[in-house]
Design a protein around this nucleic acid. Sequence first.
RNA 1: GGUGCUUUCGUCUAGUGGUCCAGGACAUCAGAUUCUCAGUCUGAGGAUCGAGGGUUCGAAUCCCUCAAGCACUACCA
Length: 511
Amino acid sequence: MNETKEVRVRFAPSPTGPLHIGGVRTALYNYLFAKKNNGKFLLRIEDTDRTRFVPGAQDYIIESLHWCGIIPDEGVSVGGDCGPYIQSERKEIYKKYVAQLLENGCAYYAIDTPEELDAMRKRLQDEKSASMQYDYINRMSMRNSFTIPKEELDEWISSGKPYVVRFNMPANEELVLHDMIRGEVRVNTSTLDDKVLYKSDGMPTYHLANIVDDHLMRISHVIRGEEWLPSMPLHVMLYRAFGWEDSMPQFAHLPLLLKPDGNGKLSKRDGDRLGFPVFPLRWPQDMSQPEIASGYRETGYYPEAFINMLALLGWNPGTEQEIFTKQELVEAFSMDRVSKSGAKFNPEKAKWFNHEYLIRRTDAELLKDATPYLHGYENMYDGLTMERICGLVKERLHFVKEIWEQVHFFFEAPTQYDEKAVAKRWKPETPAIMNELINIIGEMEVFNVESMENTIPEWITSHQYHSGNTYNSIRICLVGEAKGPHLYDIMEIIGRDETVKRIRQALSVIK
RNA sequence: GGUGCUUUCGUCUAGUGGUCCAGGACAUCAGAUUCUCAGUCUGAGGAUCGAGGGUUCGAAUCCCUCAAGCACUACCA
């Protein structure tokens, strides 16, 4: 293949529903490969199956890629000089190419009904035939160009009766194919069948449309999921049939994403079953609809963390680096470091990635991210203090949306006190000690972390109070339970008056 | 059933004939951080490199056989 050819790759999903993370990863690898090689990334919609068309799916796909930062250079919603990029709008184009194959004998007409096809398969199964498909042997007992006189067939077709066009797969040719990830793949064409290229509804099948479009759109590399590996021989034969073998793209078949438990490829159902999203965005998108499947965006993932996690599922840089910006991924990416075997998706590690991205946010950025989750308290303190609160708790978070449970006590006094903590720490002498503390707080000239460090430990040791019980009792008064950041930080932020108020409140409630 | 692909710690993986009685990350467990929880740091356990045979002075790495898993096997993509 021509090495100097411009790199042009495409992501070509079907709008049959939401894109799942396997699809996003395929798009990502295409994107990374394109950018790494100064090439173009195209988005094409393969909607040749009208019966499976799902309204909204196309917009969902576009929005998902956009959220991930996987932006097409060309294609649907972007434009370009190889359009249209929606296959149903290219119907007329395919007609012309089918005619070419019919003419040169690489394809033929078939008029078997679905019932006849079922009967054939059943018959072959009953006979325990080695071949169970519509191939060079079995086509001779079916209704097609090989078995029906030309005039009769022409008559059938010109009278508007249904027909399909099948590929004329030759017998016994040894094919040696090359895959960028798997190396050589050898297949004998006798094991292949005569795939339908053109359906009775006047639409091409995936195979035909795919080859024609990839050729017309000057695609240099076909990077897709491993489920397509079995049809690579057909596709290569199709390039040959058209006489396009010289400009044929290189193929790379990506390993599958497997479900976290058990075996098999990750499916749309696994998310609900195992409690993690399998979709980038929730589906359906329409917020008035009940949520059917959750999305990474709505769960609180940063898109950068999401694609970082996805990139490492089936590819590795060969170094020990795990956290990559998108630009770093582009620079590090190479197809020969993509693994061959399927990868089980690990939801725990996905969360870890988000945590890593979260702690890298500055306090100011985090405050911005967290504002929707602060229940209207985002301006309760000055900006710097608000940022400080975020900084104090950020390492405890996997997702920004979890922030309220870590910070609520900065904004609202506790209304109840954790029974276990009280039972463990609140002793008969505690009320007296707390009253003493109120006095000490009142006498402090300034009320901040430093002044507390200078007075409170000394007060505790000089009276020989039990430090664990004392500190935790204060914490119970302020927070309501034995949790949270350092006590002095909490006290300084909520302030002297609020601190005293909360201790008094606790004294009146805890018996 | 047929065809193809794959096979290193629970999981993702490094490893392309000696430096590997196999390294890292997530998860797990333990210790430290003496106000808590979380986090962080340190450490530990965890892989007979799918099995068997061969080549070689030497194999996770090369060859053969087998097994298992997965994918495909539609007028779906």
